[in-house]
Simulated scan of single mutants.
Amino acid sequence: MTETLGSPVGRKRPDSQLGELHLRGVSRAYGAHTALNPLDLTVKGGEFIALLGPSGCGKTTALNCLAGLLPLTEGEIVLDGRRVDTLPPEKRGFGMVFQNYALFPHMTVRANVAFGLRMRGVGKAEARRRVDEVLRLVRLTEQAHKHPGQLSGGQQQRVAIARAIVMEPPLVLMDEPLSNLDAALRLQMRSEIRRIHQEFGLTTLYVTHDQEEALSLADRLVVLRAGRVSQIGTPAELYERPADPHVAAFMGYRNLLPLTIASADAAGAVAEGRDLRLHGTPVGARPLSPGDEVVVAVRPEDLRLAEAHEQAVTEAVAEIVEYHGRVLHVEAVTRAGDRLYLKTGRQVRPGDTVTVAVAPERALVFRAPDEEGTP
């Protein structure tokens, strides 16, 4: 068997690795305000689950309930057949990685990583072996003698991860761990987190508001809005078939167009209004009828400059044109004032009138949500 550099060599996964974690009707309220509506989720050992949504959607509340930092209003948390929501945080044995790293500035990297083991009374020889192993895994062996202030932001984040996983926890909880890093470092650390997750056999629950981050890291995503689950699924499922306009917006469908159904049948739907007319693919179990209000979602890469033979969606005037190498990102405005976002390899300048088109299978037609956000 080929050994992976930095992996737990010659060992099976830690005995504490979980089999299944069940969140059953987990909710949290503050008086009359419900921050998290009943959440049901099963996490299998080795999975990487991302909780995704805007600020205030309930994702950090869910994480804190799981960690034991907030008591549940209702529901239960069951780890491998044992209820743990009644236990204090330190008895649950979960690893935590915070947004601000929470490192001890007066301690070396080695001392920071070893701190939890020392508090638990792990023997010196065993503690040294585990710390050495984890420092190799996060590629910080040469920085072991340094203090946090001597490290880069990415290195500090890796110390925080090492400190969490050296305890061999059944579950690692990460609360927006990359939000304080610059764009280039975030990309690098995404790969590092995924590598560490795989090589150490972790089970991870990860909170983020960044859909690209969630798509690149997670096995499954839980999209939250106003404390409610909008959709749970694999990155491919959510990317290709978002359940509603809210999920579509998080999955990169930047064009969300409020229109009215002109006609609908088994072949698709035609939606129009505000100088727009397009053929699209209905999403949802309820059939659409003429006159229904809808939201049509289209990705910028799927809204393109129309060819001469194509049926155009509308005309618009290019207002902002950004150079992104071989592709231009264009923001255009229709006569009715709607903003359209598209990408093209053709030459476009600000002020140009463009005619745009989209393939019917790339335009998703959702029933317009009501005031409570329900389609």
Score class of each variant (00 low, 15 high):
Tyr206Val: 00
Ala218Asp: 15
Val298His: 10
His246Glu: 15
Val223Met: 14
Glu212Pro: 00
Leu224Gln: 13
Thr203Asn: 04
Ala266Glu: 14
Ser230Gln: 15
Gln231Val: 08
Asp275Glu: 13
Val247Pro: 06
Ala226Asn: 15
Ala297Pro: 06
Asp265Thr: 08
Asp265Lys: 02
Arg195Gln: 10
Asn255Ser: 09
Arg241Pro: 13
Pro258Gly: 09
Glu237Tyr: 08
Tyr239Ala: 07
Ala236Glu: 14
Pro235Glu: 01
Gly201Ile: 02
Val295Lys: 01
Gly273Phe: 10
Ala218Ile: 14
Val283Phe: 04
Gly268Leu: 07
Leu257Thr: 02
Met251Ile: 08
Thr234Asn: 01
Asn255His: 01
Arg195Met: 08
Ser289Asp: 03
Arg274Gly: 09
Gly268Ala: 06
Ala269Tyr: 05
Ile261Cys: 06
His279Trp: 04
Ala269Asp: 07
Val207Ala: 02
Asp292Gly: 05
Val222Lys: 00
His197Pro: 09
Arg225Cys: 02
Met251Leu: 13
Arg220Ile: 11
Pro245Phe: 14
Leu278Gly: 13
Asp219Met: 12
Glu301Asn: 02
Leu259Lys: 01
Arg194His: 09
Asp292Ala: 04
Gln198Cys: 03
Asp244Gly: 07
Ala267Met: 11
Glu301Leu: 01
Arg274Asn: 12
Arg286Gly: 09
Leu217Ile: 09
Ala249Lys: 14
Arg254Glu: 15
Asp210Pro: 09
Gly227His: 13
Gly280Ile: 03
Val296His: 03
Ala266Ser: 10
Arg225Lys: 14
